[in-house]
Design a protein around this nucleic acid. Structure first.
Lengths: 122, 122
DNA sequence: TCAGTATATTGACAGTCTTCGATGGATTTG
DNA sequence: CAAATCCATCGAAGACTGTCAATATACTGA
């Protein structure tokens, strides 16, 4: 952090720096929403799972997903659940197996919200 | 989760679902990088601070930032530090006061990396 | 030099997240 | 029906995060 010499003394101690009040344009609610979206994606395993599911248009079996990421089965199940509860993916059971697939529309909406949110940062 | 009847028995138990091995195209390193980028933004206070700093081209004093977010001064300082260590913002001290400002290039690069990363999800 | 002010840092606490072994439910095959 | 398989859930341990009171640091003005 640079240190600058004190210029004029236009500002006195005890005074609020800017006369005007500075308020975020991002309301707390908007910030929370964007945070939730970002948080959902902010995990390497979830990103990898999503990437695989998005690439294989067809359904992907859990055992293949397990083999694709560096965590054990209960952990895979956990992350799949988070993605599912967020609506990003869904699955069908077929006998013993569970086949997961992305919810294309939800994934697109998520990316749109994030892109729009990040645009608001300037 | 829907449950489908078992169709043919093209697949036997114990067999890997797909013959081919499914590998993420997102390497662990790439996933970690994207995760770090997303994590940095995934907090409402940091988002609000960034938004304010990005909007006010000039430097913004910490006391104004404090007034803009719903946490106490040490917490503001903490989040400013995270943003600063990530290179997204910087500050100059001027006498008693510290004025923060965004690093435009870094912010742009961050958004670019995130956009590129999300594009790889399908 | 001293008291006062702005910001940073420390330290402690509470809450959340990630992980995995153990277990359970569902299903299929023999 | 019994044994095996796949997947989900539970429960606990450890790591990490966010927060703030207290304190430290740096500076200013008197």
């Amino acid at each position: 952090m640079k240190t600058l010499p004190v210029l004029g003394s236009e500002r006195r101690r005890g005074e609020r720096c800017s006369g005007r009040e500075i308020r975020p344009r991002l309301t707390p609610a908007e910030a929370e929403r964007l945070t939730a979206d970002l948080t959902l994606l902010a995990h390497p395993v979830r990103l990898q799972l999503l990437e695989v599911l998005a690439r294989y248009e067809g359904r992907v079996c859990v055992c293949d997903l397990e083999a694709a990421v560096p965590v054990k089965q209960p952990t895979v199940s956990h992350h799949l659940r988070l993605l599912r509860e967020a609506g990003l993916i869904d699955c069908e059971r077929q006998g013993l197996w569970a086949y997961y697939f992305v919810n294309r529309a939800a994934l697109d909406h998520l990316r749109e919200r994030i892109a729009a949110g990040l645009d608001r940062l300037g």
